[in-house]
Amino acid sequence: MIARQLLLALSPLGIALASCGSAATGEKAPSPAADSGTPFAVEPVAQFDEPWAMAFDAGTGTLFVTERKGTIRFRAPDGTSGEVTGVPKVAYGGQGGLGDFLFAPGQTGATLDRRVVYLSWAEAGQGDTRGAAVGRADLVCTEPTRCSLQNLKVIWRQVPKVSGSGHYSHRLAFSPDGQYLFIASGERQKMTPAQDLGTNLGKIVRLLPDGTPAQGNPFADKPAPTNQIWSYGHRNVLGLAFDAQGRLWDLEHGPAGGDELNLVRPGANYGWPLVSDGDHYDGRAIPRNATRPDLAQSAITWNPVIAPGDFIFYSGDRFPAWKGQALITGLVATGLVRVRIEGDKAIEEARYPMDNRIREIRQGPDGAIWLLEDGEGGRLLKLTPTGAG
Rank of each mutant, 00 (worst) to 15 (best):
D355C: 03
A350R: 00
A333Q: 10
R338N: 09
V337L: 11
G330F: 07
K345H: 01
R357T: 05
R340Y: 05
G330N: 15
I328C: 02
E349Y: 04
G335R: 10
V337P: 08
W322R: 13
D355E: 13
T334I: 03
L331D: 04
Q325D: 15
L327V: 00
F319D: 09
L336Q: 03
E348M: 03
I347R: 08
R338V: 11
I358H: 04
A346G: 04
A326S: 07
R318K: 12
K323M: 13
R340T: 07
R351M: 13
G330Y: 08
I347C: 12
L336N: 03
R338K: 14
L331R: 15
N356W: 02
K323H: 14
L327W: 02
K345P: 03
G343W: 00
E342H: 12
A326E: 08
F319N: 11
V332I: 12
A346K: 01
A333P: 04
T329H: 09
E349V: 14
R357G: 02
A321P: 09
I358W: 03
F319G: 12
I341C: 04
G335K: 05
R340I: 10
I358S: 13
A333N: 05
F319I: 07
L336R: 01
T329V: 00
W322D: 06
K345D: 01
M354Q: 07
I358Y: 05
Q325M: 15
I347G: 08
K323T: 09
V332D: 15
I358M: 08
E342P: 06
K323C: 14
R338D: 06
Q325N: 15
G330V: 12
I347D: 09
E348G: 06
V339Y: 10
W322Q: 14
D355P: 03
I328R: 02
A321V: 06
A326K: 00
A326T: 09
E348P: 01
V339D: 04
V332E: 14
K323L: 14
P320W: 05
D344E: 02
V337M: 13
A321N: 12
E342N: 11
K345Y: 04
I358F: 04
A333H: 11
I347T: 09
E349T: 09
I347H: 12
I328Y: 02
P320D: 07
R340W: 09
Y352Q: 10
T334V: 00
R318L: 15
D344V: 00
K345R: 10
L331G: 09
L336A: 00
D355I: 03
G324E: 14
V337H: 08
R351I: 12
I347S: 07
Q325P: 15
E342W: 10
R338A: 06
A333V: 11
E348R: 08
A321L: 12
Y352S: 13
A333M: 11
R357H: 02
I358K: 06
L327T: 05
V337R: 01
V337W: 11
W322I: 13
I341D: 00
K323E: 08
E349I: 13
A333S: 15
E349G: 13
A346L: 07
T329R: 01
D344W: 04
